[in-house]
């Protein structure tokens, strides 16, 4: 088998891998931020519900959750494996992202809220204008970690039949008999993706940094 075609076949899976990540990561962020706000500012019942959600979703291996969500979700609506897988990963990630954002909110000092209320801002205004902007800055570093995890976990959708990097490596490995080179190629591609994303997010963090005297 031609080496160039071999690598190319696996490389084509990158589109799917990035696609899954592009759906899962932002949906996880939006849900996670919403849940975090409920967990920090919600009433007692809401706080308990959020805590339960977080504990359960983070206590089960992602692949198990993925299969459950896929078969539950696709029982109702007819979604392709790509969308079902990506959204499911997003839901799973939301539990982890909720914890990240929650931690970031709590690390913004209580005094900020107090000062905001003191000039007449409502609680909602304070959350949007004062707490969240600082929260999101605090959240970038751990979030970069979660982004890397999602890129890697995107490989789990191979079980649903999405032709992403890992599945392609399996297929071409089987047909060529060269399993090790196939998996090594896959590993290299994942590594490159994770490396690039960490770098990019590092740049973003620097750009958003609030100036201070050393």
């Amino acid at each position: 088998m031609d080496v160039a075609n071999f690598i190319k076949y696996i490389l084509q899976g990158t589109v799917y891998t990035l696609g899954v990540t592009a759906v899962a990561l932002p949906s996880g962020l939006i849900l996670g931020t919403l849940f975090a706000l409920l967990a920090v500012y919600g009433g007692k019942t809401l706080k308990q519900v959020m805590s339960l959600y977080s504990t359960v979703m983070r206590g089960i291996p992602p692949i198990v959750l993925l299969l459950i969500l896929y078969f539950v979700m696709s029982g109702e609506i007819n979604l392709s494996p790509f969308w079902a897988g990506s959204i499911s990963l997003g839901i799973i990630s939301s539990a982890y992202q909720m914890e990240i954002v929650r931690g970031a909110i709590l690390s913004v000092s209580a005094g900020q809220m107090m000062a905001a209320r003191a000039i007449g801002l409502t609680r909602m205004q304070a959350i949007i204008n004062i707490i969240l902007p600082q929260t999101l800055r605090n959240a970038i570093a751990p979030w970069s970690n979660e982004a890397a995890i999602i890129i890697k976990d995107s490989s789990l959708v191979y079980a649903l039949g999405v032709p992403e990097i890992l599945r392609r490596a399996q297929l071409i490995g089987a047909s060529s008999g060269s399993y090790l080179p196939a998996y090594l190629t896959a590993a290299l591609i994942y590594f490159a993706l994770v490396f690039a994303s960490s770098r990019l997010l590092g740049l973003l963090e620097k750009k958003l940094e609030i100036p201070a005297n050393p």
Binding site: D2, N5, Q12, L171, A174, S175
Partner: peptide, 14 residues
């Protein structure tokens, strides 16, 4: 499950 030659597999063009 196209990982089972010669019953089902992929060629280099996929």
């Amino acid at each position: 499950s196209a990982d089972y030659p010669p019953y089902e597999s992929v060629d280099e063009s996929g």
